[in-house]
Nucleic acid binder design. Structure first.
Ligand SMILES: NC(=O)c1ccc[n+]([C@@H]2O[C@H](COP(=O)([O-])OP(=O)(O)OC[C@H]3O[C@@H](n4cnc5c(N)ncnc54)[C@H](O)[C@@H]3O)[C@@H](O)[C@H]2O)c1
Ligand SMILES: NC(=O)c1ccc[n+]([C@@H]2O[C@H](COP(=O)([O-])OP(=O)(O)OC[C@H]3O[C@@H](n4cnc5c(N)ncnc54)[C@H](O)[C@@H]3O)[C@@H](O)[C@H]2O)c1
Lengths: 208, 208
DNA sequence: TTAGTGCTGTTATTAATTTCACAACACCTA
DNA sequence: TAGGTGTTGTGAAATTAATAACAGCACTAA
């Protein structure tokens, strides 16, 4: 089984390969890509070992080939269909950011209880009323949701999503969701992240 | 030295204590708070040990007291002054979300190169022109920055921030910043997070 | 061809983090 | 008082993650 951390780093390696390697570079050494990603060369080689990719000594890794290998591993055969639930400030920012990006992550719908938001097209995808949630998720075969609703309703909305068949949730509400273990949850609590940064920033200040 | 993970969990414990514990509850057992946070009781006890807090057997932890202990540990003596750089969709969402929250994290300024954004008050804090960055950061004694600028400029903006004296950065641009090691960086790459969720969601789908 | 160089893949080692397990303690009840 | 129950704090064990180390290969140059 492959780890959490490894998957996240693979995603980053691919992004670097696609965005930060110029077209004429056809191969790269582990220390080069590792340094772009701020990880150790050993770590990078180990991550690639996990997906069964091999470079060649003296030659390194073929950029095109490696990019595709990571893609095959991360993306699977068909695009992942994604919904964003809660089209407030954050939800809209995420939709507009992700729309028309990576073709294998498709934002196909969004949901909101607020009638001034639902029924419109926001950031390139249709925003539906929350009542339609189960229907649309099943019909559109959506497997992943981004949850950006106010925290008091996050748990109950998550349960509706899971009942409707969602298999993974990227949760921005600062509540640790309680879900059955087959559902994968990734929590992104902004306040906790900022408090962490503030704590360590103060540590370095005080060390002076 | 206290770990990364522990600090993040402490922040979460505090949030739960403040928001999810009703006023008449005066004490809690480790298994109760642990279950709210979805961690093991042993983990919780160990985290509290790290900050030198002690409960009492049979009684558990005093809610008020524990909340304050975590606060003393995380917050330090004075509020942390924070700036948001790049007032696009995401920057504005974060500012409006954080303004008027936790009093020890103060958003005191924001910055943008776009003249239609700078010079105004956005989400309760003044948005300055990017030219003023160094001046304001020094004058306002800002130690932490949230970075929400387009990724091609993220590295150069980060360097300006560090020159101006910033000690910690919460980075939303999907580039791994290269910075001197005294500066604490927390990367929040939305795409990588979503790809990770999509990957594990697919795993559970295929396991069926 | 042969020796040399510099890389990869993988095993071994070390480090970090989490969980286990249990003595010691507080409190309740009789 | 004494015995029972249920919790904490923490050393030890287990697990997980990261780093180091190195054999072996590919290529170069003489
Ligand atoms: N804005 C940020 O930067 C930010 C940062 C961190 C965390 N968050 C969290 O993300 C969540 C949303 O933040 P926001 O700033 O976008 O808030 P917001 O109030 O702007 O948006 C919330 C949206 O959810 C909708 N909504 C409410 N109940 C709903 C339901 N039951 N089903 C579907 N939609 C529902 C509302 O109509 C609204 O449009 C909150 O939990 C917040 O704590 C936001
Ligand atoms: N919107 C999202 O949900 C989201 C999610 C993940 C990551 N991101 C990342 O966050 C960043 C911002 O995203 P966004 O959607 O808010 O984009 P955006 O284009 O809406 O906002 C970017 C803002 O930065 C400003 N800017 C440009 N150059 C600047 C400079 N040198 N100094 C200061 N300000 C500058 C622009 O004027 C603009 O207001 C991007 O790197 C993006 O990849 C956004």
């Amino acid at each position: 089984m492959i780890s959490d951390k490894t998957v996240e780093r693979l995603s980053q390696y691919r992004w670097l390969l696609e965005m930060h390697v110029d077209a004429q570079t056809i191969n790269l050494f582990s220390h080069q890509l590792a340094s772009m990603a701020s990880v150790s060369p050993a770590q990078l080689r180990r991550d690639l070992m996990a997906i069964g990719y091999s470079g060649s000594p003296g030659k390194g890794y073929m950029v095109r080939d490696l990019t595709e290998s990571i893609g095959r591993f991360l993306d699977g055969s068909k695009p992942t269909r994604v919904a964003v639930v809660g089209m407030g400030n954050l939800g809209r920012a995420i939709v507009s950011f992700l729309s028309g990006r990576r073709s294998h992550l498709k934002i196909v719908a969004s949901f909101d209880t607020d009638v001034t938001k639902s029924g419109r097209v926001i950031g390139g995808s249709h925003c539906y009323s929350q009542d339609k949630l189960e229907e649309i998720i099943k019909r559109e075969n959506i497997s992943v949701a981004v949850l950006t609703v106010p925290s008091p309703v996050a748990q109950s909305v998550a349960e509706k999503l899971i009942d409707a068949g969602i298999k993974g949730i990227l949760n921005y509400a600062p509540v640790p969701l309680k879900v059955p273990e087959q559902v994968y949850i990734e929590n992104r609590d902004v306040t906790a992240a900022l408090e962490k940064v503030a704590y360590f920033a103060r540590q370095t200040e005080e060390r002076e």
